[in-house]
């Protein structure tokens, strides 16, 4: 019986690890999915928007600890808002200065945004140094919950999970229940007709891009609770994120969630049985194989391009 409960505990912990990976992956993929789904634009600098969010949180944390220590338990919520705002504004500028000139050349967008990511990485390195930094977490984020003797669930993981659920819910509401969401979905499905019925598709594009970047910023804020931040932290996840979006099927929120879950759980389970790098190889290969058999992704909606 004790063997059984131990096995159950391992299973629960392993499942929880998978869920943590799932949350980070989903938070990053959400922003990318609405950008890629609507505009067909590949934003290689998406990981750097995550880093922007993470560094913003770090700034908030160090400002709080040095100027207003009493404020420390609450700063994190303001940091999340700040991360969103800054990433949103940078995204808006990038769309205005770079992306909108390249809409007809998606492959070139890919190269240009890669260049942008290099520039941003170096900018982070010059500003914050090459060493990894980490935000001082408020006390209530530390520690863990123990539902039973052998299960140990960290609170920061739960917090990230809650944030992911709230954010996904808000995005779903925004996309499917608001005027703006209606415009976005119309533009995704048929850009020319949307223009014909009076939707300013250019404006929808710009806001969508900025919003996607802003979500990446929130992902970055969440990221600081489970890891430290370096200039290249964001780019580590970029390929996984792209595979998540492509596997989910472009322009499908449910697909993105499903594929992030699949990839994360596969990786976490594989990591239990073998070396971490082999688990990654196995997961990525599986995704590539699935994409070779089903290029349109798991869930796909009809889109007129």
């Amino acid at each position: 019986m004790s063997w059984f409960s131990e096995f159950g505990a391992i299973l629960a912990m392993q499942g929880f690890n998978g869920l943590s990976v799932f949350c980070v992956l989903l938070l990053m993929a959400l922003g990318l999915a609405i950008i890629f789904g609507q505009m067909g634009v590949i934003n290689m600098a998406h990981g750097e928007f995550l880093t922007i969010g993470a560094y913003t949180t770090y700034l908030f944390s160090s400002l709080t600890t040095s100027y207003a220590p009493a404020f420390a338990p609450y700063y994190f919520f303001f940091a999340i808002a700040g991360a969103f705002l800054i990433a949103f504004c940078v995204g808006y500028l990038v769309e205005w200065g770079l992306i909108r000139h390249l809409y007809r050349r998606p492959l070139d967008t890919l190269l240009a945004t890669w260049g942008l990511s290099l520039v941003m990485q170096q900018a982070f390195r010059s500003t914050f140094g090459a060493k990894e930094v980490s935000a001082t977490l408020p006390d209530w984020l530390m520690g863990s919950v123990k539902p039973s003797e052998s299960i140990d669930i960290p609170i920061n993981g739960l917090f990230v999970m809650g944030l992911t659920v709230i954010l996904t819910g808000m995005l779903a509401l925004l996309l499917y229940r608001s005027q703006w969401g209606l415009r976005v979905r119309a533009t995704t499905q048929n850009r020319i007709m949307s223009g014909a019925v009076g939707i300013n598709t250019r404006r929808v594009d710009r806001i969508t891009f900025a919003l996607g970047c802003g979500i990446a910023g929130i992902a970055g804020a969440a990221f600081t609770t489970i890891g430290s931040t370096g200039p290249t932290s964001g780019s580590l996840y970029i390929v996984d994120t792209f595979l998540t979006v492509v596997l989910g099927g472009a322009a499908s929120l449910a697909g993105t969630i499903a594929s992030a879950f699949t990839i994360a759980q596969t990786q976490a389970t594989a990591e239990f049985f073998m070396h971490g790098s082999m688990a990654k190889v196995l997961t990525l290969s599986a995704v590539v194989l699935i994409l070779m058999m089903r290029p349109q992704g798991l869930f796909s909606i009809k889109v007129r391009r």
């Binding site: 067909g40 590949i42 998606p106 492959l107 890919l110 390929v239 792209f242 595979l243 492509v246 070396h275 790098s277 082999m278 990654k280 190889v281 990525l284 290969s285 995704v287 590539v288 994409l291 070779m292 290029p295």
Partner: peptide, 21 residues
């Protein structure tokens, strides 16, 4: 187009992780 580029990029990642591992 873009899908092919992403898959080739993933293959580059797979091979380099495999060699290092």
């Amino acid at each position: 187009d873009v899908y092919f580029s992403i898959v080739t990029q993933a293959i580059a990642l797979i091979l380099s992780v495999l060699i290092i591992g």
